[in-house]
Design a protein around this nucleic acid. Structure first.
Length: 473
RNA sequence: CGAGAAGUAGCACAAUUUGGUAGUGCACUACAUUUGGGAUGUAGGGGUUGCAGGUUCAAAUCCUGUCUUCUCGACCA
């Protein structure tokens, strides 16, 4: 049991290296000669496809339509909203040549598509009858990051961005929260990721937004991963772009806007929340292969039994039969590094008792099951694994949230404890800056459901908000 | 972007200090024997040493530049 997987660095020894090892050994990504732009390998992409399938269905159910927008943004178009351009200018990639010819006006590769959608919305929104417009696109964007890591921070990002326009601010605000809830539910139920959901502070909000809501997950090492955002823009962009519609009362009005997005970064979140020293551990709902059958020996009876069991499984329970001529031990390890939720071992020894062995990946527990009951046992076990993975992650996260009352303790914890700290805050950006500068902790989100009383941990003035702070990826 | 480390077969590394026929293990291919936690034997295949220049009779090895990866920091919806 000691050195089953020698290729993966111990998670508690070097978490960063462990993460990189899992990404490679589970065959999720590969590198190319393009810095920070990973190759997502078939197994990694299959996870993304499952994520896409589920989310896309939710988007459609809530009335959204998919579109495809241009990849390039002319500089003048990017410059229309000044907060927005200020936020993104440092990290956009520019196209300056078309073939041999220098372009009259350079274009950036979209870092996000607000301006493209706005330009288009200006042309298609004329009446209140044209609202709401609920568009989404699945695409890649480019942000010229200096430090890159697979899934967590890349220069080319695979994501989904929803952009909507509404008749009233209330409706737009409701949309912002509606999509936030869809993300939250998806991450909890499908990815088994507990997330803190809340509003970003002024300092941390999206360039050009009025409100930014975030989903903050905590990784195994206590570091935060921002796993999605939903923004309410008010009418800033709409005004900047001159988007207007004639309302029922025959007056010209400006519509209200939202945008929301999640990326393949969620896959990084799954790895860093659930993975262990054997490799990846995938939540059943998004695992490309949910069950792997491993025959012990080559006896025909064994293979026939496997075929028979596999054929009784429901269509959504995707499976694979590993009938390669590797040794069983090799196959066990290979299935584990890939995080396949259930392994079924079948050998003559089992067949004599009319049984097979089920092994769950999350706990590595084994149990023998009568062949007549395998089908229902697998169904039940997949649900149990999904539930247990969430419960474990939730418990662990909650244990790593600390209620901190004074600044000295905050500084101490920032150095010596991994996790999030809950603090009282006066609302002044200067205090937020000071925390960041002196402790490296950034505000994650505002806590809405706790009563505020007592002094700000930094300046001692009466606190107006409770916030989570933590280090982030 | 700053500091540090690395790049030699798919992977892990040796040969670099002292320039002189590019090697080992795993993986891969074929056959045989195996199969309940990374099997064994035999026989094979695979390389412009990241890339581009330079020095030299001769460069994986020395010099310059560049690209990529990793770690830490800065930056980062």
């Amino acid at each position: 049991m000691s050195k089953l997987v020698t290729k993966i660095t111990d998670r508690d020894v070097d978490f960063s290296q462990w993460y990189t090892d899992v990404c490679k050994e589970a065959d999720l990504v590969a590198y190319s000669s393009v810095k920070g732009s990973m190759i997502i390998r078939p197994y990694g992409y299959a996870i993304w496809e499952n994520i896409q399938k589920i989310l896309d269905r939710e988007f459609k159910k809530t009335g959204h339509e998919n579109v495809q927008m241009p990849m390039f943004i002319p500089e003048s178009l990017l410059n229309v909203e000044k907060e927005h351009v200020k936020g993104f200018a440092p990290e956009v990639a520019w196209v300056t040549y078309g073939g041999e010819e220098k372009l009259e006006e350079r274009m950036c590769v979209r870092p996000t598509s607000e301006v493209l959608f706005c330009e288009h919305y200006k042309n298609i929104i004329h009446s209140y009858r044209d609202l709401p417009k609920l568009y989404n696109q699945w695409c890649t964007i480019v942000r010229w990051e200096k430090t890159t890591r697979p899934f967590l921070r890349s220069r080319e990002i695979l994501w989904q961005e929803g952009h909507t326009m509404h008749r009233t601010s209330e409706e737009a605000k409701a949309e912002t929260l509606r999509m936030l809830k869809i993300y939250e539910k998806f991450q909890r139920e499908c990815l088994a990721l507990p997330v803190l959901v809340g509003r970003k502070t002024e300092k941390e909000k999206f360039a050009g937004a009025e409100e930014t809501y975030t989903l903050e997950a905590m990784m195994y090492d206590g570091v935060a991963l921002q796993n999605g955002t939903s923004h309410y823009f008010g009418d800033h962009f709409a005004k900047a772009f001159g988007i207007q519609f004639l309302d029922e009362d025959n007056t010209l009005k400006t519509p209200y806007q939202t945008s929301w997005g999640v990326t393949t970064r969620m896959i990084g979140g799954i790895i860093m929340t659930h993975g262990d020293n054997h490799g990846l551990v995938l939540p059943p709902k998004i695992a490309p292969i949910k069950v792997i059958f491993i025959p012990i020996g080559t006896d025909e009876k064994v293979l026939n039994t496997i075929e028979k069991i596999a054929s009784t499984l429901k269509e959504e329970i995707t499976y694979k039969i590993d009938d390669s001529d590797k040794s069983p031990g090799f196959k066990f390890a290979a299935a584990e590094v890939k995080g396949i939720p259930i392994r079924v071992e079948v050998g003559l020894r089992d067949l004599e008792k009319d049984e097979v062995v089920l092994v769950r990946r999350d706990t590595l527990e084994k149990k023998s099951v009568k062949i007549s009951e395998v089908q229902t046992e697998i169904e039940k076990l997949l649900e149990t694994i999904q539930k247990d993975m969430y419960e474990r992650a939730l418990k662990r996260r909650d244990e790593m949230i600390y209620d901190v009352k004074d600044y000295e303790t905050l500084k101490d914890y920032a150095q010596n404890k991994a996790g999030f700290m809950k603090i009282n805050w006066c609302g002044d950006m200067a205090c937020e800056d000071q925390i960041k500068e002196e402790t490296g902790l950034k505000s994650r989100c505002i806590i809405e459901d706790e009563e505020v009383s007592g002094p700000c941990v930094v300046c001692g003035k009466e606190a107006t908000k409770r916030i989570y702070v933590g280090k982030q990826y």
